[in-house]
């Protein structure tokens, strides 16, 4: 569990610098499904700054996941470019993309995607072993409040616990950005809040820029900015003057 003492009772105000992590310009993505062309992204422009939490909202098929996957180097763009810290990752080679994922990005998935044959600690080590400047796996796990269950295998843990290990695994490399695709999608609301608290704490303590995809509007409250996607385009960007602590979210 998170150490309650460290969490402000008041609304959390974190420092968002003007340092740009991602610069996305006219980003388009077309999937060819047989004879049909699916325009997943139709020209997205976006900037993401260091230390901020962004929530990507939108209905199914609005292009949220496509955008996240392109940002994370899992998918390639059809048009436009994505700059990560001044480097265009749309032109990156396979090898460069692997390195990019290896050293700079942390992923959290809806279904955790833990390695079933590795314990909690080892699931984190699997990343720290290949990273450049990782934290100790135990530290990563205690940030998400799982310092005690290091030796457990995924099959011995609850969904919330598994997702927090996934978060620990994502942050253990000290990534610049944390990309979370429906991190609470498979969890009930109280477990979901615990997971969100972990994300929030990571952002606050480590300053990791975080993008959270959700179709759950209530989660938007914890973001600095909320980006609404629909039909492959950004329809609206709203700013929260004050971030709500996850504990105060309800759904």
């Amino acid at each position: 569990m998170l150490n309650k003492k460290n969490i402000d009772k008041e609304a959390v105000q974190t420092s968002v610098s003007e340092e740009t992590v991602f610069k996305v310009k006219r980003l388009k993505k077309v999937y060819e499904m047989g004879e049909v062309k699916v325009h997943a992204l139709r020209g997205v422009d976006l900037e993401l700054y260091s230390g901020e939490i962004i929530v990507l909202l939108g209905p199914s098929g609005s292009g949220k996941s496509t955008l996240l996957n392109i940002l994370g180097g899992l998918d390639t763009a059809t048009e436009g470019y994505v700059e990560y810290r001044g480097k265009d990752i749309t032109k990156a080679t396979e090898k460069e993309l692997t390195d990019y994922r290896r050293y700079h990005v942390g992923f959290v998935f809806q279904f955790y995607n833990l390695i079933p044959s590795l314990t909690a600690l080892e699931n984190v080590s699997v990343v720290t072993e290949i990273a450049k400047n990782p934290m100790k796996p135990e530290d990563a796990l205690s940030i998400v409040g799982l310092g005690e269950r290091l030796g457990h295998f995924p099959s011995q843990l609850s969904g919330g616990e598994q997702q927090r290990i996934a978060i620990a695994r994502a942050i253990a490399k000290n990534p610049e950005v944390l990309l979370c695709d429906e991190p609470t999608g498979a969890l009930d609301s109280s477990t979901g809040i615990v997971v969100l608290e972990a994300l929030e704490r990571v952002n606050r303590e480590l300053g990791t820029a975080t993008i959270i995809i959700t179709h759950n509007v209530d989660i938007a409250g914890m973001a600095n900015r909320v980006i609404h996607l629909s039909n492959g385009l950004i329809s609206e960007i709203t700013k929260n003057p004050v971030r709500k602590p996850p504990r105060e979210l309800h759904w």
């Binding site: 994370g72 692997t98 994922r101 992923f107 998935f109 995607n113």
Partner: peptide, 14 residues
């Protein structure tokens, strides 16, 4: 494949 894909996403090379 899921496990291996996860590892690829986490930055493991082929």
């Amino acid at each position: 494949s899921r496990e291996l894909a996860s590892l690829r996403v986490l930055g493991y090379t082929r």
